[in-house]
Amino acid sequence: MSQSQENFKRGCTEILALHLLCKEDLYGYQITQLFNEKSGGRFTMLEGTLYLILYKLEEAGYLSTYTELVGKKRTRKYYHIEPAGREYLKKLLAEYDEVSKGIALILDREVEADEPNK
């Protein structure tokens, strides 16, 4: 994976993690597995990197966490998206759509016609 791909992925991780968490509460390993499965292996992320992003989202109040007992001794930390997180995701998706369209236009790719951004 090239550095540019890594940088791009890092930027997308917040959106993707928040989106997945909109459907259900998930734990860290589960999120990385879903990234891999749903992207057909195109989007993989190291747990260490993901956790730092999740911590930032939690610190900002977009996510909360709780633990559940797994087996006899182990606990598992689940992430839950808060209302503020859903709002933040909406904002990120809007920005993502704008940027994607802008990039597509620059690359001379076809996009849906709409009002240009002022």
């Binding site: 734990y27 860290g28 390993y29 589960q30 747990e47 260490g48 956790y51 182990r74 930390k77």
Partner: peptide
């Protein structure tokens, strides 16, 4: 957290 992921 890494420990949990590894054990998962």
């Amino acid at each position: 957290d890494l420990r949990n992921s590894i054990y998962d």
